[in-house]
Design a protein around this nucleic acid. Structure first.
Lengths: 133, 133
DNA sequence: CCGCATCCTATACGATACTG
DNA sequence: CAGTATCGTATAGGATGCGG
């Protein structure tokens, strides 16, 4: 598909959008851009099921507060499911929902593209910063 | 490609990532999640070249401040190019770079996926909110 | 027309300490 | 172990007015 065809289709899709849908799209993408969301989704995609402490170990630098907040947000978005075993000591584990797996799948091409063009991004940025100086 | 194969590949890709690349990925996605970025990129994809005031008209509700800020950010990321005609009154127009077109292309599948699953997102959220009550 | 300066609110993110 | 509470800073986003 050419770029123009792609644009035409996206134009049609956009015209068909309700304002609520457009807000939803931005919201989901905004969540995906949050500090730890992608890391959590990816870790769960790789491991299948993980406990809170497992995730804390895998996401180096995350605090309990931010991990909990991120998990709640992802759960609210329906991307992960939370299972509380109701034991003492506490045992809670998380896994991707079908929706979460779908997001991960849908993100891959974009992700790969960003990595492939990492150098272009760095070049563009350093050029911009130089010109501003 | 199955989900597991996809995960395995993303795992390999992730292992190969420098920490800087990972930060870059998050940063680009965070910018994509910003309030007006996608709208600007999409509008430029559709129209080709637009002036500041054209964009302001197309993005209903945007303020001059946020539009300028968004344009600077996108320009710094190398996604759009800015051409100042240096006339009086001022005349500045914006268009997508190859990198910007690439981002738009890469975003389409994800975008379409979010729209396709809009109802699932709403269901998940209302279920979550009900259970919290 | 385009952009900036100023002032404001909301929230992401983090450090730290605490609870069942 | 999982989560909450409280503190702080940084930044997104907006309203409004000024200037080349």
């Amino acid at each position: 598909m050419t770029f123009d065809e792609l644009i035409r289709r996206s134009q049609e899709a956009c015209d068909a959008l309700s304002e609520a849908d457009d807000g939803l799209k931005r919201e989901i993408l905004a969540h995906a851009g949050n500090r730890w969301s992608l890391g959590v989704v990816h870790a769960l995609g790789v491991a299948g099921t993980l406990r809170h402490s497992d995730l804390a170990r895998r996401l180096e630098g995350v605090t309990q507060r931010m991990l909990t907040r991120t998990l709640r947000q992802l759960e609210r978005d329906g991307l992960i499911s939370r299972h509380d075993h109701r034991e003492v000591p506490p045992r809670v584990d998380y896994s991707l929902t079908d929706l979460g797996r779908g997001l991960l799948t849908g993100m891959m091409p974009l992700w790969a593209w960003v990595i492939d063009n990492a150098e272009s991004f760095r070049d563009a940025r350093s050029r911009f910063d130089r010109e501003q100086a």
